[in-house]
């Protein structure tokens, strides 16, 4: 009389299988991947020069004695951009929402309604495998760039607590990114075409996640609202933790808040999926 463990075993083995397949699928394109990763750092070169020019102008004028903008020095801003690349490596989900919408539109989603596999779980495992493969290959280029730019990290390695919080925020950033985008993909149950909506989301996310510039540069009145949005967890928040821009005594509270957002998006995604499936009528063969 042990149907429960055997079912669990079956589940684990099938999840492992999905993970392995996705991992192998991803490693096929490793050469292109590594080169692409290195190229992605190129825009940072222009950013370094732009910010140098900005700080140069500020210092020559001489009325900003601290030499900081929004609490960031020149070196910290460069370090910030590098760290957001790391944050985005966790939280960006290329093709997730559009993939879900496409599966809905083309009727492929029926597969998950008939087979004993949960769509969201399947996609999450797939994504973890893809990310895992990505890190294996991207670790080289990332390490190289961070090593070459080590002098921008003026305060050296942060404390262990900070590193732990940083890792936690990266992992939660990944999960928030996943469930947020999956929820957007679920809109496909209601509107068949979501690509333009996605583009608008991408625009806002680029700006409001802190990928474009540190959010603390925003005028105070706007910053106040933006920091309430969950988008900051995708890029700004992990980098700010690493650079010690989040005060130690607020760190726990901020991380708890992030966890709340995560729970919110998991629930939202689940509800949207179950509601969507009820609405769904299978188009296409």
């Amino acid at each position: 009389m042990s149907p429960v463990p055997s079912q669990l075993q079956w589940k684990i083995s099938s999840w492992m299988m999905i993970f392995r397949t996705a991992l192998e699928e991803r490693l096929v394109y490793r050469g292109d991947f590594a080169l692409g990763t290195l190229m992605r750092f190129l825009p940072i070169v222009t950013q370094i020069f732009l910010w140098f020019a900005v700080f140069d102008a500020i210092e020559s004028k001489g009325d900003n004695t601290e030499g900081t903008i929004g609490g960031f020095s020149f070196e910290e801003i460069v370090a910030y951009y590098l760290l957001t690349m790391l944050g985005r490596a966790f939280s960006s989900m290329p093709g997730l929402a559009s993939g879900i919408a496409k599966q809905i539109r083309e009727g492929e989603i029926k597969r998950y309604l008939i087979q004993p596999i949960d769509l969201i779980g399947f996609l999450l495992l797939n994504r973890i495998a893809h990310k895992f493969a990505y890190y294996v290959i991207a670790a080289g280029p990332f390490a190289l760039v961070f090593f070459l730019c080590r002098h921008y990290f003026v305060s050296g390695w942060p404390s262990l607590t900070t590193l732990f919080a940083f890792t936690l925020s990266l992992v939660m950033g990944f999960l928030i990114g996943f469930f947020l985008e999956a929820s957007i993909g679920m809109i496909g149950f209601w509107f068949l075409e979501v690509s333009s909506l996605l583009f608008v989301y991408m625009l806002f996310s680029f700006f409001l996640s802190g990928h474009m510039f540190p959010l603390s540069l925003l005028p105070d009145s706007i910053e106040y609202f933006v920091t309430f949005l969950p988008l900051k967890y995708l890029a700004y928040f992990p980098a700010a933790i690493f650079l010690g821009k989040i005060p130690q005594d607020e760190l726990l509270f901020e991380l708890a808040l992030e966890a709340c957002w995560l729970v919110f998006f998991i629930a939202l995604c689940r509800i949207a999926y179950s509601r969507g499936v009820q609405r769904y009528s299978g188009y296409g063969g």
Partner: peptide
């Protein structure tokens, strides 16, 4: 959406010029 992208860039540079008068000294 392409105008939206432009507006975002404009926003970024407007923020930048809140902190500095010029890009590059002199």
């Amino acid at each position: 959406s392409s105008v939206g992208w432009t507006l975002m860039n404009v926003g970024f540079y407007l923020i930048l010029f809140q902190y500095t008068d010029t890009i590059g000294a002199e």
